[in-house]
Write a protein that binds this DNA or RNA. Structure first.
Lengths: 124, 124
DNA sequence: CGGCATCCCAATTGATACTG
DNA sequence: CAGTATCAATTGGGATGCCG
C-alpha cells in the first residue's frame, strides 16, 4: 500500500532514489539540522558540524542549493559573508531529520549494548 | 536546545555519529522501509529493494542485526529460509524513515524543477 | 536458495594549500 | 572569510564462485 504516486524510491531508476541518497549522505542530515536552528554562515556551519572539511561543506551546500532546499546569499562586504538559509521546502524536511537525529541520540546506548552482545556471541 | 543528553552526532568522535552514518547509507532506509511492512525473506528483500546486490543486502542486514534493529531467523528447511524481522527498536525507527521516504516522493517533482532552474541559471 | 568470501574497480572523501 | 583545486587514501559496491 505504498508506491502508487508516481515516484518510487524502491525503483533504482526513479529520481526519488537520488533524493534518498542525498538525504542519506554523511553530511546532509547534520547540515540541515544546524540550519533548522536558523540561518548560518559558512564558518558557523564548519564549526558546528565538527569534522567536515571545507570541500565537503561547500559540496553539500551546493547540492542542497541546487535542490532548492536552501538559499545562499552573499554579502560582498570587505570580508565576504555568505549566509545559508533553509527554504520552505528545506524547512519542511528539517523536522523529519531532527527526529532521526533524536532517535539516534535516544537509542545510541541500546545500540552500543546490542553491538557488544552481538560481538560477544559471535567472536570473529 | 539540543545536544544535552550525552550523545551528540555533531561531534565526530561521538558514537552517535556512526548511527547517523548507518541510517544514512544507501540501503538502510530502503531495507527498513520494506521490513516495516512485516517480516521478509532474503529473496523478498532483494526483489523489493531493486538494484541492491546480494553482497550489500547481506552486509546491510548484518549491520542492522548487530545493532539490534532486526532479528534473523533461519529455518533449516530443505531450501533454507532466512526470515528478517524488525525488533521493537527497529520498528521504532521505521516510521521516521518512512516519513523521509514519503517526503522524498512528495517533493521530488519540486526538487527536479529546482535543479533544472539552477542548472539553467548557472550553466556549467 | 541463502549467504559468505575474494577480487577488483570506481566513485567519494579528506587534508591541505591556494585564490578572490 | 568564502570557496576552489589538487592529490592521495579510503571504501562502497558489483561480479563471481563456493559452501550449507
Amino acid at each position: 500500500m505504498d508506491e502508487v504516486l508516481g515516484f518510487d524510491p524502491y525503483n533504482p531508476d526513479c529520481p526519488s532514489r537520488q533524493l534518498v541518497d542525498r538525504i542519506g549522505d554523511r553530511w546532509t542530515i547534520l547540515v540541515i539540522g544546524v540550519l533548522s536552528d536558523g540561518p548560518a554562515r559558512h564558518g558557523d556551519l564548519a564549526r558546528r558540524v565538527a569534522g567536515i572539511s571545507p570541500k565537503m561543506l561547500s559540496q553539500t551546500l551546493k547540492g542542497l542549493e541546487r535542490d532548492g532546499l536552501l538559499t545562499r546569499t552573499v554579502q560582498p562586504t570587505s570580508p565576504p559573508h555568505a549566509i545559508y538559509e533553509l527554504t520552505e521546502r528545506g524547512a519542511s524536511l528539517g523536522p523529519l531529520l531532527l527526529a532521526v537525529e533524536n532517535w539516534a541520540r535516544t537509542h545510541m546506548q541500546d545500540v552500543l549494548d546490542a553491538r557488544h552482545a552481538f560481538d560477544e556471541a559471535a567472536p570473529r
